[in-house]
Design a protein around this nucleic acid. Structure first.
Lengths: 248, 248
DNA sequence: AGATGGATAATTGCATGCAATCACATATTC
DNA sequence: GAATATGTGATTGCATGCAATTATCCATCT
């Protein structure tokens, strides 16, 4: 998933800096001082600088015209767009999967993942760990579709998106798990998964694409719920980056 | 269009390095030596390094596991995917435009651009300069749709795509201009433009998206033509990066 | 002759120094 | 008292030095 398998220092800086921002230790609009980060991370300015450039590409920070960077802020519209974008890209990936003949092994892997999700969703009650497992499996499912699209260009594009907060497939699952209708949503999501695989196996590219897109609307729905409740918002990773629409 | 309006040195390195690669002065698979670039560009290693990181994000170079970078090679499938991706993203942008009520001024600007393209395409004969103008206007039209989508997320995403070779809207126009059916293609493209604006004005998001997508298929068609003829290929910017499918 | 090993040269990743720029606070003037 | 000017401290962008890793070439061995 990480596109720089290269060794440490710069990579370390990227990961830790991302954590710092997503955990809200750097607030939106706040300038990110190189030296301050150097102190916190214990690496020199060069990798920090590299990391900042990278995070700018990812969209977590904006660069000031005067030089330096600030933590970016995300509006509700931004998040919706990010989700839509992921939907569109995953839609392309699903279409590609349906257009080409997946190998037996590939199909088996997808079906295996689908099966695991099935048995998980159907448990009588879901623990916290179960939800973690769900996120893991869900990520794997989405990752498989992208990988099996057999398109490095699409793959790269999606992987870049996934670095943005709130665009991961499982971004809202943990908070959603606290909703009363949580179970229902999982059923629907899993039905989407099943239908997508069905479309791929039946060589129905248009349907596969459409379903993948529609699937992403679940995230959008969850977003709306989360944004309405301060309690849920607190449990959302990266929530400190969200600018709530002030209704005056 | 350039997202780092910051002043020189690193920016210079990015631009010049991109030129070097696109002009074929660095061949695909070839390692890009930092010091060699330092000599050629007259800037120190630091900005060169920054530029390489950026070009990697853009997809022009790949980073070696051992360290350093190589010029990337593009297969026909890669280019098709890039074109499709642009189509999908511009489709989203067009949809967004149709979903919201564009201001009078915005609409006027789009119509103005459309009108300019119209009068250009309808000239009895097209000179080389006319084709340059067409590319400029065409870029402007596509840029307007993206800008008026009013979505920074989508906008950023597309701008990043446009750094990849062969994904610019006008990438194939210059070579296409040498084809006998060139005129016909321009008419069709312009009809797409017209229909997209029509859909936007009529608040038909689905239709706007579909048309924008279909519009990108023209580039795909042009690609196929170009790839079949060595003569056309030579006139394509960045053609040195293409790995032709060897049919043995 | 081909393959394996080792030494040397080259290249990269990182840290740091330096100069230029920018931000901020104080002082000054209207 | 408010706004502008000025000076100082902080911060960034760039260049370069150093160490470690990697690639290359040649000699040696099977």
């Amino acid at each position: 998933m990480e596109e720089t398998p290269r060794n440490s220092q710069t990579t370390r800086a990227i990961l830790q800096l991302r954590e710092l921002i997503l955990n809200g230790e750097l607030k939106p609009g706040e300038r990110v001082p190189e030296l301050g980060i150097v102190e916190r991370l214990g690496v020199s300015r060069t990798p920090v600088r590299l990391a900042l450039a990278r995070l700018q590409e990812e969209g977590l920070v904006d660069c000031l015209s005067t030089g330096g960077f600030v933590v970016r802020e995300f509006s509700e519209a931004d998040i919706i767009d990010a989700i839509d974008l992921r939907g569109a890209l995953e839609g392309m990936a699903a279409r590609r999967c349906a257009e080409r003949r997946l190998s037996r092994a590939d199909l088996a892997e997808v079906r295996d993942c689908l099966g695991s999700l099935d048995s998980l969703v159907r448990r009588p009650a879901l623990s916290m760990d179960d939800f973690s497992d769900y996120i893991r499996l869900n990520d794997r499912f989405h990752g498989l579709l992208v990988e099996l699209s057999n398109s490095p260009v699409i793959q790269r594009s999606i992987e870049r998106m996934l670095h943005m907060p709130f665009s991961q497939p499982g971004a809202f699952v943990l908070v959603q798990s606290e909703l009363p209708e949580s179970r229902e949503i999982l059923f629907i999501a899993q039905d989407h998964h099943r239908s997508i695989v069905e479309a791929i196996e039946a060589f129905e590219p248009g349907r596969a694409e459409m379903l993948a897109r529609e699937h992403s609307r679940l995230a959008r729905r969850n977003l709306q719920v989360v944004l309405k409740s301060q309690r849920h918002l607190q449990r959302l990773r990266g929530s400190s980056l969200i600018r709530l629409a002030e209704d005056a």
